[in-house]
Design a protein around this nucleic acid. Structure first.
Lengths: 277, 277
DNA sequence: TACGAAATGGAATATTTATTCTATTAATCC
DNA sequence: GGATTAATAGAATAAATATTCCATTTCGTA
């Protein structure tokens, strides 16, 4: 008689699943370890796959994957999948509730807050893998790799994203130029044919960023964009767009998914340039 | 009799679906228009939802949502869902073959690279939760909350971290000052008693950052630090230190843990100030 | 190498979910 | 305003999927 009665043992968060996955990596029997290994690397497939698919992908029988789920503390695959589906499904509180939520958070511990942001980070990374396709990212990396100079544009929350990218591209010796905030954004005179623009803009979108990107696009410069929302104005004229949604805590978002994506992009660009040589 | 026979009419890409969605918005009957409206805004729910769920969310009967899918050119919901699931599944390499040597692949695709960085992000977040204690973070947040002005210092890779923090603190109306790169770092004349310095420095440590932080500490200013290594020079004089280790991919690190931590810190600082009021 | 315990894979069953059918209601046209 | 057609919602059916069971194999130990 299998006993999935005590719901206290059922993992409630992605973080908990990851911990058990890592803990079990050593002690699990062969087939179940295969499951753990594959699942660890492909968490994002769980919400959209059936047991049979996950099992086949892990190289085990469906029943084995079933036992794997139970070893993790779930009653079965459905329960585990439910946890991951919730990531996508979960409703996000609205912008204006921020202040109220913040007060509410005041009396919970700082550590609890960190745990929530970490959890949000896990979720964001999962959804990142969901929304970015190999082909799309590949095309963008290829397009940017051919640029004479990559112009990086991003203000406010997006500024940290482009500045980290600028640092990394510089280290990789990929020619790039970071357009600094306020005033400097008039500098479309420094963008020439053969260059590309990489613009990052999150809702609500900075008119400055959009304007410079649009001006460039109008002049025939290829514009690639990164945003967090479907209705980003960059959509209208960008050659290609990336989307990185960030899970939020009490109305605040980290930059986990965005920076993970731009880091990947930078490395991919360099890799493409190298392989052409 | 609806006739879904000709597969030429079946949308093959998300773009095509969006086009039909927009085209049909006018001509579709009431209930089906409801479906179109909701679906247009919640495309990401399709891969993880059942027909009933999508129907209920759209405010229609399951059978109505069914007809909606067929109006779009699909044979049914499953076929439509398949298209969206494929987005996620897309860069799934043929599993069984590559099982053993996942991490030793020679030809690493862009999607695989993203998966690796995401994986590194997960690990970084896990280790963050392990290395940062509730009490330590609490003390630091409390200490920084009492500052007249928070001075943010960070160069190179750390610059993105402090600049994102500066943005967030600004939005939270916590007085802070971001010390910009090169030249500006002499500005220890602008740091006064009652202020606090938050310095971020990753190995190899920028002498500039260390120097300014040390000068401040020597003058009795409280210095808090964030680093990725035990032997950070800030250790010698900082009031308190935070450590965020980043997992690396092929020698490259993202900033997942660091920015998650500083985001948490910023929000915690604001929360403390609010609860004192 | 032989024994017991644990693990495994395939087949049987239960459950969920998609899809179709039909009576009823609403809209359109003459 | 009545006749005709389209649209709708709920129930019935079909298909897919999760889950359990059990005979067989593998593993660890003496």
């Amino acid at each position: 008689m299998t006993a999935p009665q005590s719901s206290a043992l059922v993992p409630q968060t992605v973080t908990e699943v990851l911990e058990r996955l890592d803990a079990g990596a050593d002690i699990l029997p062969k087939r179940l370890k295969q499951c753990a290994l594959f699942t660890r690397r492909h968490l994002h497939l769980i919400p959209v796959s059936t047991v049979s698919e996950m099992a086949r992908a892990s190289g085990v029988a469906p029943s084995a994957y079933m036992r794997f789920c139970q070893a993790l503390g779930f009653s079965g695959y459905s329960e585990m999948q439910g946890l991951f589906k919730a990531q996508v499904t979960d409703f996000r509180p609205d912008y204006q509730d921020r202040l109220g939520n913040l007060r509410f958070q005041a009396d919970v511990g700082t550590g609890q807050l960190l745990a929530e942001f970490a959890e949000a980070g896990h979720k964001s990374l999962l959804s990142l893998a969901n929304s970015v396709t190999n082909e799309g990212l590949d095309r963008i990396a290829r397009g940017m790799a051919q640029a004479r100079v990559i112009h990086l544009i991003g203000l406010r929350r997006a500024y940290a994203v482009v500045s980290s990218m600028a640092y990394l591209l510089d280290k990789l010796e990929v020619p790039s130029s970071l357009h600094y905030a306020s005033g400097m954004l008039n500098a479309s005179g420094t963008i020439f044919e053969g260059d590309v623009v990489f613009a990052v803009s999150f809702a609500p979108f900075s008119p400055e960023t959009i304007r410079l990107a649009r001006e460039s696009a109008d002049r025939g410069i290829k514009v690639y964009g990164l945003t967090d929302s479907d209705n980003c104005p960059l959509n209208e004229f960008a050659t290609e767009m990336l989307i990185a949604r960030e899970d939020e805590v009490a109305g605040f978002r980290s930059l986990t998914a965005s920076i993970t994506l731009t880091t990947t992009l930078a490395v991919a660009i360099k890799a493409m340039q190298s392989s052409v040589d």
